[in-house]
């Protein structure tokens, strides 16, 4: 048993119990349904802005892009304009590929010792695949949830739903009925990706070694969100009209506690609230930070265009005069030109 992930797992279980018991026995609907979500959104919004502004208050003194390809130099040498951007539009493209397609992670490869002590660097795209699958499906799931927050539901969200539920998964066993409501692929892929990311953190020794409880916590938490969501949609079935009436109440600032919605919904909502509130104080801020990373968001053109450092201060230097004063005699002797000849014969 690894205390690092047990800690996080227990934390998430406690959160679950908090919400579950809070609703089931204490009936704290207003707290879990209204106050906590509002507070969480507030903390999230303000926290993220605060963190970004905090970052922004430190300048970028130097232009330090990591160059991952040929620089722009002589006109006949093919320039790697994305990996070594020289202009801002190339930087935008580089950032776009970075943020949307995780381009740097795509380069990932695994180092291996081989027979004959030959090193090899092999295909290791699973992390990339897992990361892309996780982030994209999370995005799709979030956007899909806007159906609970908009009335009428915008067409583009409906299209996304259609696309997401294009493949039908319909079957019925003695224990399980799946098919109506239609199955959204994104939710399942999200869960699968989470499980992959979790397993890798648990069982790849290197990754486990560098992980903290704080790295497991969001995984378990988002897994909790996904599981509670999937449970409500595919197993328990909840009155989604009532839920939408409730969520619409939240966003129109007329919150009303709905009738007939089970505690799992409040667990789901509580998990989401925790995630939002936790976000600005954690590594999850990488979502914002990736945009501010100076090794990626700058052009490699500081030889062509001067970059100014706002805190550039004068430093003590060893001037030529001091230098010549020290070595003048020897310089003259060696026939090196000097600024000032010897004045008094040494």
């Amino acid at each position: 048993m690894n205390s690092k992930y047990m800690f996080s797992l227990v934390a998430v279980i406690i959160l679950f119990l908090l919400a579950y018991i809070g609703i089931e026995t204490a009936g704290l609907y207003t707290l879990f349904g209204i106050w906590i979500p509002y507070a969480a959104v507030f903390i999230f919004a303000v926290g993220v802005v605060y963190r970004v502004v905090d970052w922004a208050q430190s300048p970028v003194p130097f232009r330090i892009p990591t160059t991952c390809g040929q620089q722009k130099s002589l006109p006949w040498i093919r320039h790697a304009s994305i990996d070594n951007p020289a202009e801002n539009n190339n930087v935008v493209l580089r950032m776009f590929l970075e943020v949307v397609f995780f381009r740097s992670l795509f380069r990932n490869m695994r180092f291996d010792f081989n027979k004959g002590n030959k090193f090899s660097y092999e295909w290791e795209k699973w992390l990339w695949v897992g990361a892309i699958a996780f982030h994209w499906t999370l995005f799709v799931v979030v956007v899909r949830h806007l159906r609970f927050f908009t009335e009428p539901v915008p067409l583009c969200i409906q299209w996304l739903e259609t696309l997401d539920s294009f493949l039908r998964v319909e079957f019925m066993t003695d224990f399980l009925q799946i098919g109506l409501p239609g199955v959204f692929m994104s939710g399942l892929v999200l869960l699968a990706a989470l499980i992959y990311l979790l397993l890798r953190r648990m069982f790849i020794p290197q990754v486990n070694y560098i992980s903290f409880s704080a790295d497991f916590f969001p995984l378990f938490l988002i897994m909790g969100i996904a599981l509670s969501g999937l449970f409500m949609r595919y197993l328990a079935k909840v009155d989604i009209v009532a839920i939408k009436a409730f969520t619409m109440g939240l966003v129109t600032f007329h919150p009303v506690i709905p009738e007939g919605v089970g505690s799992v919904f409040y667990v789901h909502l509580f998990f989401v609230s925790i995630l939002l509130a936790y976000f600005p104080f954690s590594k999850l801020m990488h979502a914002g930070g990736v945009f501010l990373s100076p090794t990626r968001n700058m052009a490699n053109n500081s030889r062509a265009e001067r970059h100014v450092n706002p805190w550039n201060y004068p430093v003590k230097v060893h001037t030529y005069e001091e230098y010549e004063d020290e070595f003048r005699e020897k310089m003259i002797e060696a026939g090196l030109p000097v600024e000032k000849e010897l004045t008094n014969g040494g």
Partner: peptide, 17 residues
């Protein structure tokens, strides 16, 4: 003084790449 430092301190997710 260094945004790079601040951002790099905050955003590592320890993916292990």
């Amino acid at each position: 003084r260094f945004r790079s430092l601040k951002v790099f301190m905050d955003i590592c997710v320890r993916c292990g790449a």
